[in-house]
């Protein structure tokens, strides 16, 4: 599926941007798990899309306008790869300097993820847990599904 190819290409782009950890995750999650989920959904639902009768003009106009506004927003941003931007000279240098003394591991991203910002990672696991519970409640046998409307819908169809 094309979406998986897209994920893999974006992982390659992330490697060229020096974000190897992110590229690993994107390749595993985006090109792996997400495609499996997407394909299984397509198997459970329908494979073909029906033609929509709505005109494409209004979305196109909205998208173009939003894009122009966003591009206007980037005009104040620093050049790509510049070393003296606010994002580079604020706390990032501090993290790079202190990781060897504080955490004693070579990978700075892991150090921040696991230690400096450990609570964020805890929150992330909480989100995944909630999503898992949500999927179980929606699809699993545990769910208290009200089946009242199904018959009515069949009548309408």
């Amino acid at each position: 599926m094309l979406s998986g190819v897209f994920s893999l290409l974006s992982a390659l782009l992330l490697i060229t941007l020096d974000a190897v950890d992110v590229a690993f995750t994107e390749a595993a999650v985006g090109a792996g798990i997400s495609i499996v989920l997407m394909l299984s959904t397509l198997t459970l639902t329908s494979r073909r899309e029906k033609k929509s009768k709505n005109s494409n003009l209004i979305p196109l106009v909205i998208v173009t306008l939003t894009g122009l506004v966003l591009i206007y927003g980037t005009l104040d941003m620093p050049n790509f790869g510049a070393a003296d931007t606010p994002s580079q000279i604020h706390v990032a240098r501090e993290y790079i300097k202190r990781t060897p003394e504080d955490i004693h591991i070579p990978n700075i991203v892991t150090a921040i993820l696991g230690s400096y910002r450990g609570y964020d990672t805890l929150g992330e696991t909480a989100v995944i847990f909630t999503a898992g519970i949500g999927v179980l409640l929606i699809l699993g046998r545990l769910s208290l599904r009200p089946r009242r409307r199904t018959k009515k819908i069949e009548k309408v169809l």
Partner: peptide, 20 residues
């Protein structure tokens, strides 16, 4: 010179939340 690790951390978290 090292690239900024902070966005990497942020996006790692965001990818995993995104799949959820």
């Amino acid at each position: 010179v090292y690239s900024n690790p902070l966005p990497h951390v942020l996006i790692l978290t965001a990818i995993v939340v995104g799949i959820a």
